[in-house]
């Protein structure tokens, strides 16, 4: 594993990029405004692109540059653009009826990160110098999973739910850049395109929701129960 040979400077570059990405998830969690979510998501994607590029540079995986460019392009530009269009069409600027106040969801989010750390710590048995980067990557991977699910659970607006799903995927992507930089290029590219299709589908579905269900808030989607 390439992390066995990184020097402290490289390790701290990886860590800081990953940690700032995690913080941006908290920005999404702590805000009511849909636009802020999208901006935070875009910045997060750019950071992940930077992470891909730096791992590619330090660990000698030139194909990661391709991933970095595609990540910045798709996750950093195209997806936020599509999301902004959806928001513009919906005329929904902020989350009105969140189940949890932003402050409580921040506290809950912090607890989930601790939980993620406990699990990550159990999953790792490496003990070289930069092993803390491994634990951190695992922690961030898992905690962005938890935070994404938290966002899905406590937010009603359709756009927030799409963003929750995108955070789930960003977490995996971020972790995989550090843990498995040697993952076949083809798969990563296909997953990126797949994400684009996902958001396009969501966009169409949101339009159907407005027309046929008359609402984009999952709170009002309560016809089907039992």
């Amino acid at each position: 594993m390439f992390l066995e040979h990184v020097n402290p400077l490289q390790a701290s570059i990886f860590s800081s990029l990953a940690v700032v990405s995690l913080l941006l998830t908290f920005v999404m969690l702590g805000s009511h405004w849909l636009q802020n979510y999208v901006y935070a998501f875009a910045v997060q994607s750019w950071l992940i692109a930077a992470l891909s590029a730096s791992v590619g540079y330090f660990a000698g995986y030139p194909e990661l540059y391709v991933i970095a460019v595609l990540t910045a392009l798709f996750r950093g530009l195209v997806l936020p653009y599509l999301l902004m269009r959806i928001i513009g069409r919906l005329n929904a600027k902020r989350e009105l009826h969140a189940v949890l106040q932003p402050s409580s969801s921040l506290v809950l989010g912090a607890l989930l990160v601790m939980f993620a750390f406990v699990i990550a710590n159990h999953m790792n048995r490496q003990s070289f110098l930069a092993a803390h980067v491994v634990v951190m990557a695992l922690t961030i991977m898992l905690s962005m999973k938890f935070l994404g699910f938290l966002m899905l659970a406590v937010r009603d607006e359709a756009v927030s739910q799409i963003l929750g799903l995108l955070v789930l995927e960003n977490g995996i992507f971020l972790g995989s850049q550090i843990l498995v930089p040697g993952m076949p290029l083809l798969i990563e590219i296909v997953i990126l395109f797949d994400l684009l299709i996902v958001v396009a589908c969501f966009g169409m579905l949101v339009r159907f929701l407005v027309v046929h269900a008359g609402t984009t808030s999952s709170r009002q989607l309560n016809r089907l129960v039992g």
Partner: peptide, 22 residues
């Protein structure tokens, strides 16, 4: 109803399947 079902379907299943990716 069918739009609601489609929305719940894609959200729940995409969330679930992302666990499989992890």
């Amino acid at each position: 109803e069918s739009t609601e079902a489609a929305w719940k379907y894609i959200v729940v299943v995409s969330g679930g399947i992302s666990l499989a990716l992890l």
